[in-house]
Write a protein that binds this DNA or RNA. Structure first.
Length: 1223
RNA sequence: GCUGGAGUGGCGGAAUUGGUAUACGCGAUGGACUUAAAAUCCAUUGGAGGCAACUCUGUGUGGGUUCGAGUCCCACCUUCAGCACCA
């Protein structure tokens, strides 16, 4: 055997041998139990591998090698997340095509990764930028599209007019473009989204069953951001809706309206004339009224329509007008005919009838197990130019089931087209003015109809008004105004109603220009504009509320509008202060606010204005404490503070301290010492250390005080005060001075007020606020002044019949009264997947003149990314628009006419949301992955990667997996019992920590502290490198790189090499070393299973130290050890294994087992404590009984010494652990 | 501001979950080998005191629970990460 350990020979040699023998190949047909261990695949950047990458890879590699030895079929693949911006930016900079640069980078990465000896199954390598791969990314897009989970909508983006491009948030600096310094605007652009929000609740609940770190789970929880609350609608007074939106109608030129009712026709025509003047609306010429004779007629007509749907591909539109049951009309607008006919409707408002109807309806649905829903249907068809029509009408007693409804393309309620929700009358009887009041509903329905989009049926409650979401419906009586997001639809819709619209528009413009940073940076400084001319009505007390717009309300959360309760919400409070809006308390604390009054030198509780103030405040329900301070003629600060601490120990941020003269100094010392956090501090003629900075004042004190006074005052005031701390602990400080105060100069007043940021008042002729000052009325409003919102729960006040109720209990009751609904809101947004970039997966959509947005059919996938794009620079057009190849010969998959391709590509996160499925079947041309392979290997048992993907990749992947589940692509999971489907891709997830630079900072090019692994592997070898990275500390922690550390591990391997070069298998064996071996096996096995490699290594070192004292060690002692070590340092162990003339690969050996009996020691060193301090130890049998032990211990010299003839109170003996003698 | 982590020698970090604090490694100091250096081997290494046996002290700070606390509870300080007007 060679004397020198030469890693440069050994490592490549074994890497080749492993590869040639396919030892790490995962067999899809294996009968062994599987383990899927996955690393987050890297983006192959030009910079190459960085010491952070191999940390996670080494951990999984050790774990996989262990699992294989344990007899599992381990799948452990590697691939490339190759699409992404850096390659494209590189292309812009250097001019190398991304295809080329990525291919080069992959070669380099592969070389680097392979040099570390990882046990990947390279046959499964994937590359997301490979057409064979992204074909299936496109397939996923179509899957989502089919499920209504992919949609296109306008979204605001940062747009630079001069560069003609979308900018990322980081590229916007001070509201200006980073490059050209032009102003950046918020522009609405059509973007593709994935509806992650649909699964928000499930993504949240699913977290519970995952073995992820607590930190990561809470991160996802926060990101999803569920909050429970209520949706409440505020009606708007004097609102006249304006028609100011003209819709683009791309592919419908004429509509036939099938009706016998001329009033309806007239109404529709009128609306369409305004929103789509070019569209022709006609009555179906050969229209025949269908008899109103019940179910059969409707069903027949319904059936007649369906074939047309297939034949001409006509969208069939169904409209709900009322709810029916068993032939009984329960249309609330026609109550006489309804199921509610026995209710005396004359006493009920329309809304109340609606509520009754809804309850009635829910009741029925419940009786039917929710299976059936009941709709009364009117029926429409719309026709393409010169197309065919069919129409069914007015089947008043038909019960339409959900299945039937599903045959219809578009469904939406359109009651308002027929019945006015304002007047309750039918179309024929409603005058035009009333009916335009409902324009909102009607035009929306028509817009949907003409745009051929599916929408959710609006609820019957959704008439005019502002809907808000609130988590505090209990505070509804305290709402004093409303705020809309500047982007709120109502603002534009009520343009003509708003008297100050120019001002409003200006504000909207300004907020559009604000970058996100600006919007949040200035978040204390609230801005906004009132919408003059509009008022909202509080649904519980009918009070009129002003409406504002402000950018502190986000359009993208909740309903984009809020009710504002300044008394109980800090943000609303700040806004209300600024705009002078009323603040009404509706939730009161159960505890009285406390006020402590501290008197000054030589004074007491009865003097001056204190008792007066006490009485005044008690009238206002405050609890006032005025203590007599001890020895007030000769005050000692320490003693005062002791007294005061007893009083303020339970003070909260609600409470107040009023202090006078020397008492102010005591108050500040008290606050500082106790770190007391209170609401307000009043400093009345405060005597502080400032006093002595002015000679004039010093003289004044000299002359006015007795000798005793002087001495004590000086002492009292000499304590240092940390004004900054006091200022930060108190919400507001008030300072009162008098112009003729003999002790305090004007300068001090200013200095003190400034340093404390206090509100200060200067009174006339109040002296030192002592003898002459009997009352101080000015203090009352300051004490009563509200300076922050009280957000806690409590008891209801000012809330009519709810007064006295617990605020939490009032939530549901008040919501009910407001006719609101309990709802849930999420912070998570739909996932914007469009990128106006080249290097990504093309979105498989075409736009057809006739058919609109059409998905590319599956058999035409992949839509290839063209190679003839030369210029990647953003020009306003996405790069794909400039490709000839890409845009030639595009036909509509539906009608075959010319069409235009979607030019945006997809976010790279789409590609990597499903890659772990592709590994299971990387070459499959028919499916993204064969079902049986999913069944064999999913879900992933262990997933290791960086925490930076906590909320992106990990949420999106979970989302994709849930979509697959809902579409039947996931097989039953054995571990979840019969019929159980797995729907979480990553059961256990481990985030490796960062490896920091030697300076303890994050590695970055600019800091020049990046460590290149190549050189280190070159010098010390992959085995040393792997072991060092694992030995640095817990995998999940961040820790700095230290080159000296690796030397220690190299030293350890050198010692191993040297030792195993010098020995032969022999007979050296003892119970002691055998016990050590079994201990090591147990520890290493446990540690590897729990990814605690640092301690595994340390126990191997400890064992090796013992082993290496044997000249001819027993074979088991050596081989068990080598097998364990080989997971960490595979190359050197293979080499030693071979040199010791063992057969086969060490990586294919069986993992050693341990015997619990051999680990147990019969003798231990028992520590002996006296009064909890270690005083002696004793060698004993492990389970020696107390009786045998006690005397022995008491005889020990050191024990005797410490007991020192004292009585033993207690003798505690924990078997096998410790003895503690209590004296 | 909110949420979640983390604070242990000169450094990276251990501590069987409440039972001898500082395992293992690095560094440092002393010694051996060497003409010398490197490498290697041996010894020492939390702080203070003592010739020594040994004693006191010590896990961010201050309290508490316990026979016993790095570990549990309360408050605070520092630090890292994520979110950030989410109604």
């Amino acid at each position: 055997m060679d004397l020198a350990y030469n890693h440069q020979d050994i490592e490549p040699k074994w890497q080749k041998k492993w590869e040639d023998s396919h030892v790490f190949k995962a067999d899809n047909n294996s009968q062994k139990e599987k383990k899927y261990v996955l690393d987050m695949f890297p983006y192959p950047s030009g910079a190459g591998l960085h010491v952070g990458h191999p940390e996670g890879y080494t951990a999984t590699d050790i774990y996989c090698r262990y699992l294989r030895m344990k007899g599992y079929e381990v799948i452990h693949p590697m691939g490339w997340d190759a699409f992404g911006l850096p390659a494209e930016n590189y292309a812009i900079q250097i001019g190398v095509h991304p295809q080329k640069s990525i291919a080069d980078n992959i070669v380099n990465f592969t070389k680097q990764i392979k040099s570390l000896g990882f046990s990947y199954d390279w046959d499964r390598e994937i590359n997301t930028s490979d057409p064979d791969y992204y074909k299936w990314s496109q397939w996923f897009f179509l899957l989502l599209y089919k499920n209504d989970l992919a949609y296109k909508k306008k979204a605001p983006v940062n747009w630079c007019e001069s560069c003609k491009t979308v900018l990322a948030n980081e590229q916007v600096v001070d509201g200006k473009c980073e490059r050209c310094k032009n102003e950046v605007i918020q522009k609405d652009l059509e973007q593709w989204f994935f509806k992650v929000t649909e699964y928000a609740d499930e993504l949240l609940d699913g977290l519970d069953k995952l073995e992820w770190s607590h930190a990561l789970k809470t991160m996802q929880k926060n990101w999803i951001g569920k909050s429970e609350g209520a949706e409440i609608k505020f009606q708007i007074t004097n609102f006249k809706s304006q028609i100011n939106n003209k819709f683009q109608i791309p592919n419908i030129k004429k509509i036939y309206f099938a009706t016998g009712n001329d009033a309806k026709l007239k109404r529709v025509k009128k609306i369409l004339a305004k929103i789509a003047p070019d569209l022709k609306v006609e009555k179906v010429p050969d229209y025949v009224e269908v008899e109103e004779d019940g179910k059969d007629a409707f069903e027949n007509s319904f059936k007649k329509v369906i074939p047309y749907k297939g034949k001409y591909d006509i969208p069939v539109i169904s409209m709900d007008t009322a709810v029916f049951f068993d032939g009984e009309d329960i249309n609330p607008l026609e109550p006489k005919r309804s199921a509610l006919k026995n209710i005396d409707e004359s006493k009920l408002s329309q809304e109340e009838i609606c509520q009754k109807m809804l309850d009635f309806y829910k009741n029925i649905a419940q009786k039917n197990n929710g299976q059936k829903e009941f709709y009364y249907e009117d029926y429409w068809t719309i026709l393409y130019p010169d197309g065919i029509h069919q129409q069914v009408k007015n089947k008043r007693d038909y019960v339409l089931t959900r299945e039937e409804l599903s045959k219809v393309d578009i469904y939406f309620p359109m009651r308002s087209l027929y019945y006015s929700q304002v007047t309750g009358k039918s179309a024929d009887q409603t005058n035009e003015e009333d009916y335009f009041k409902e324009f909102e509903n009607v035009s929306r329905a028509l817009k949907t109809l003409l745009g051929l989009q599916k929408i959710n049926p609006p609820t019957s409650e959704e008439a005019l008004g502002i809907k808000v979401f609130t988590t505090r419906p209990d505070t509804l009586y305290g709402a004093t105004y409303m705020v809309l997001a500047p982007e709120h639809k109502l603002v534009q819709d009520s343009k003509n109603q708003i008297e100050n619209f120019t001002e409003v528009e200006k504000y909207i413009d300004i907020t559009k220009k604000k970058s996100d940073l600006e919007r949040t940076d200035l978040n204390k400084n609230k801005t906004g504009v009132e919408l003059k001319g509009l008022k909202a009505i509080n649904p519980v007390n009918q009070k009129e509320l002003p409406i504002y717009i402000s950018d502190y309300v986000l359009a993208s959360y909740g309903t984009g509008a809020i009710m504002c309760v300044p008394a109980h919400d800090q943000r609303d409070f700040e806004f209300a202060q600024k705009f002078n809006l009323p603040i009404i308390d509706v939730v009161e604390s159960e505890r009285k606010t406390k006020v402590l009054i501290i008197h000054g030198l030589g004074s007491n509780s009865n003097e001056n204005w204190f008792q007066w103030l006490k009485k005044e405040l008690e009238k206002n329900n405050y609890e006032v404490i005025v203590p007599d301070m001890p020895d007030s003629e000769k005050p000692v600060l320490k003693i005062w503070l002791q007294e005061l601490e007893k009083i303020v120990f339970d003070f909260t941020e609600e409470d107040i301290i009023v202090s006078h003269s020397l008492g102010s100094s005591a108050a500040m010392n008290l606050i500082q010492k106790m770190n007391l956090k209170i609401n307000k501090l009043f400093l009345v003629a405060p005597a502080t250390e400032f006093l002595f900075q002015d000679k004039g004042v010093r003289d004044n004190i000299e002359s006015a005080s007795t000798e005793d006074n002087k001495k004590f005052t000086k002492e009292f005031l000499s304590a240092k005060i940390d004004y900054k701390k006091i200022e930060s602990n108190i919400h507001k400080i008030y300072a009162y001075f008098s112009d003729d105060d003999p002790y305090i100069s004007l300068n001090q007043k200013k200095d003190l007020a400034k340093v404390l940021e206090a509100d200060y008042k200067i009174f006339k002729n109040k002296g030192h606020f002592s003898d002459t000052c009997l009352e101080l009325p000015e203090i009352i409003p300051d004490i009563l002044e509200k300076i922050k919102a009280r957000e806690a729960n409590g008891t209801m006040v000012n809330s009519e019949e709810f007064d006295g109720l617990d605020s939490e209990k009032a939530q549901i009751k008040i919501t009910k009264k407001a006719k609101g609904q309990l709802t849930t809101q999420y912070k998570i947004r739909d996932w914007l997947v469009s990128r106006q970039r080249y290097w990504g997966t093309p979105i498989p959509i075409v736009y057809c003149q006739k058919c609109g947005t059409v998905p590319v059919s599956e058999e035409d996938l992949p839509v290839l990314l063209p190679e003839d794009v030369k210029d990647f620079r953003p020009t306003g057009q996405p790069p794909l628009a400039s490709s000839k190849e890409f845009n030639a010969n595009v036909k509509c998959p539906k009608c075959g006419t010319d069409a235009i391709r979607e030019h945006d590509t997809m976010d790279g996160f789409v590609d990597n949301s499903w890659y772990y499925y592709r590994y299971l079947d990387p070459k499959n041309e028919k499916e993204f992955c064969a079902k049986e392979n999913i069944k064999k290997y999913m879900p992933i048992d262990t997933y290791v990667g960086g925490a930076e993907h906590a909320v992106g990749h990990l949420i999106y992947s979970r989302f994709f997996t849930k979509v697959l589940r809902d579409n039947g692509y996931l097989p039953v999971d054995r571990s979840l019992g019969e019929g159980g489907k797995f729907d979480e891709p990553f059961l256990k997830l481990i985030n490796q920590g960062l490896i920091l630079g030697t300076d303890g900072q994050k590695m970055s090019k600019s800091l020049g502290n990046v460590i290149n692994p190549d050189e280190i592997i070159q010098e010390y070898g992959a085995d040393s490198f792997r072991m060092y990275e694992m030995f640095m500390g817990p995998l999940e922690d961040s820790k700095p790189w230290n080159i000296d550390g690796i030397k220690g591990l190299r030293r350890f391997l050198d010692k191993n090499w040297k030792y195993f070069s010098s020995i032969n298998y022999g007979d050296d064996f003892s119970d002691q070393i055998n016990s050590a071996l079994h201990k090591a096996i147990k520890k290493v096995t446990d540690d590897i299973q729990n990814f605690r490699f640092n301690t595994a290594i340390s126990s191997l070192m400890i064992y090796f130290k013992e082993l290496s004292s044997l000249d001819n060690p027993n074979k088991v002692l050596v081989n068990s050890y080598l097998i364990m070590l080989s997971t960490l340092a595979p190359h050197i162990c293979e080499e030693i294994w071979q040199k010791l003339e063992n057969s086969g690969f060490i990586c294919q050996q069986e993992w050693p087992k341990y015997d619990e009996k051999l680990i147990k020691e019969d003798k231990i060193t028992l520590p002996i404590q006296i009064n909890g301090k270690l005083r002696a130890t004793i060698e004993v049998e492990i389970d020696v009984p107390e009786n045998d032990l006690k005397d022995k211990i008491l005889e020990l010299e050191n024990v005797q010494k410490f007991i020192n003839n004292e009585k033993i109170k207690k003798f505690i003996y924990v078997k096998g652990k410790i003895v503690n003698i209590v004296l």
